[in-house]
Design a protein around this nucleic acid. Structure first.
Lengths: 122, 122
DNA sequence: TATTGCTGATTACACGTGTAAACGGAAAGT
DNA sequence: ACTTTCCGTTTACACGTGTAATCAGCAATA
C-alpha cells in the first residue's frame, strides 16, 4: 500500500536522521506540523504495517528506521505523478512549470547545467 | 475540495471534448477504464458538487462541461507535487528524473529548447 | 394504456486517511 | 508498596474515495 501524505512527513523525519524513538520523531516534526504524540504513534504503526520502516527494541522503547529509501520514494512519487498528470512527458511538465511558475536565474542555470550534463553523457 | 484521481479522469474526457452527456463521457472513458455507467454518474455528480463542472439541461439529459481549466488543474497539481515532494525545487526534480528515468534524445532536446527559450526571454 | 428503457438522484459500502483518546504494562520516583 | 509517568497497543470516528446498485420519473414503444 502507498505511503500517505501524513505518513510521508514521518518518513522525512526518519530520512533526515535515524534511528529515532517515537518521542524524537514527534520532536522533529513539532516545528512543522501540529500533531499530538498519539498521532505520530499511529503513523509510525501504520508505516510499520506497510513495511516502510523498521522498529528495533531498545529497552522498552523502539528505535525506528526507514526501510525504504528516500530516493525510491521520490522515484515512485515522481513517476506516478508524471504519468498521471503529464502522460509521462517530462519536457511537457517542465514546460508547464516554465510558463506558470516564476523561475529564478539560478533555477534556469541549474536546469541548463543538468541538460548539458545529459548531452555530454550521451 | 480537491479533485480525486478517478474524478480527474472524467475531467480529462471533458477537457478533450465538451459538452458531453453522461453517456458520452462513459463512452469516452470506456477504452481507458473499466467503470460501470453508474460509477461515471457518481463521479459526475461529485464533480458537480465540487463545482468543477457544469451541467446544462438538454431535454431530460444533461450536458456537462468543465468549469475549471485543464491548465489550472495542472498548475495546482504540479505546484502541490513539487512543493510536497521536492520542496518546490524544480531543478531538483528534473535532476531526479534525469538520474532515474531514461530520457530519450528527443526529451533532452526538448528540454534544451525550453531552457534556451527561458534564457533568451530574460 | 401498460410496458420497457433511459437518465438523473439517492443510497450503499468497504477501505484509506487524518486525527486522536483510552488502555495496559513497565519504570521510576516517594 | 503505591503512585505517577512513559511508552506501545488498541480502539475510535468522521470524511473522502472507488465502485456500484437501486429508485424514480419521463419517453418511446408495443
Amino acid at each position: 500500500m502507498a505511503i500517505s501524505l501524513a505518513e510521508s512527513q514521518v518518513m522525512e523525519a526518519l530520512w533526515e536522521s535515524n534511528p529515532l524513538t517515537a518521542q524524537q520523531v514527534f520532536e522533529c516534526l513539532a516545528p512543522t506540523v501540529d500533531w499530538s504524540q498519539a498521532t505520530v504513534k499511529t503513523l509510525l504503526n501504520r508505516l510499520l504495517k506497510k513495511q516502510a520502516i523498521h522498529a528495533a527494541r531498545d529497552g522498552q522503547k523502539f528505535l525506528y528506521s526507514p526501510l525504504i529509501s528516500r530516493d525510491d520514494y521520490l522515484s515512485d512519487q515522481s513517476k506516478g505523478f508524471l504519468d498521471r498528470v503529464f502522460g509521462g512527458d517530462l519536457p511537457a511538465m517542465v514546460s508547464h512549470f516554465s510558463q506558470h511558475e516564476p523561475l529564478s536565474r539560478k533555477d534556469i542555470d541549474a536546469l541548463q547545467e543538468i541538460i548539458t550534463r545529459l548531452e555530454n553523457d550521451d
